[in-house]
Design a protein around this nucleic acid. Sequence first.
DNA 1: ATATTAAAAGAGTTTTATATCTTTTATTTA
DNA 2: TAAATAAAAGATATAAAACTCTTTTAATAT
Lengths: 148, 148
Amino acid sequence: MISKTCGYAIRGVVFLALEKNSKKKVGIHEIAEELQIPKHFLGKIMQELVRKGIIGSIKGPNGGFFANSRTVHRPLKEIVEAIDGLGIFNKCFLGRDECNANNPCPLHDEFDTCRNAIFKTFENLKIADLVTKIEKGESSLNMNYELF
Amino acid sequence: MISKTCGYAIRGVVFLALEKNSKKKVGIHEIAEELQIPKHFLGKIMQELVRKGIIGSIKGPNGGFFANSRTVHRPLKEIVEAIDGLGIFNKCFLGRDECNANNPCPLHDEFDTCRNAIFKTFENLKIADLVTKIEKGESSLNMNYELF
DNA sequence: ATATTAAAAGAGTTTTATATCTTTTATTTA
DNA sequence: TAAATAAAAGATATAAAACTCTTTTAATAT
């Protein structure tokens, strides 16, 4: 559904949002290591998010990426829009050029419901909601969970 | 979700199933032209489906691909399994290596429901069901619909 | 000012998915 | 049996996605 790149983006932003209270910037090295994502690749992605205004960054010593005041209030949809574009929510399941109520593929109806549910979820869920889940210990961004 | 290749596979099989009553084999040229899918590429895909026993083929004059007696009764899941593998139904939405109830990502629960719904649909829907929809004129495999 | 730090930017590589071309093999028909 | 047909198979090409490396730019601290 969403690209791997876009998953990285969401995880990156949520990671920054988790650190928000600490007020300090986070270097790409730390983010990448923590999330187990290739550093330079994640760097590119974060840069794109900065360009789109979703997060902020500062160069130089003590610089890094950071969640700005609006970051946590953004719905996930905006990150998807920034990275993959919203087109991914309209793609035909069977790969036809277009798929709509006028000229549906045989799976259109079955998956339209589902597709809409996903879209709604991305519209409704905010970065802050994911942060809350993680802070409650209900989920995690990486696989390094405690073994005991 | 499923790959473009897999969408081609489903459309190819359904196309054959539609022609089943005519009892004649269908050449890859015709299938590809009708469905607007690159000919040689679709050929490869159909060959794979023949190897997996989902459809049949015969070489030589008047040869071609055809739906065998079991084809129409197969659930879509089997085509997905043959082309993409069932792993696609368990991929983490955020691209983490694994994602399960033990160590879920913050989107796991939201999408697990949806993922299961999709999987169920693929398990329940049979090739014959798609054929019926198309025969009823409710949907189509290509974009060449009548304009008036 | 200078050295240092860290993101930004640019260019390049690798991998995977998608697509094409050519040759071979099996089958049929004349 | 020879010619024709059409899938199978093999090899290759292209495109997109994912990832890496190097240089540049901006900011800071000494």
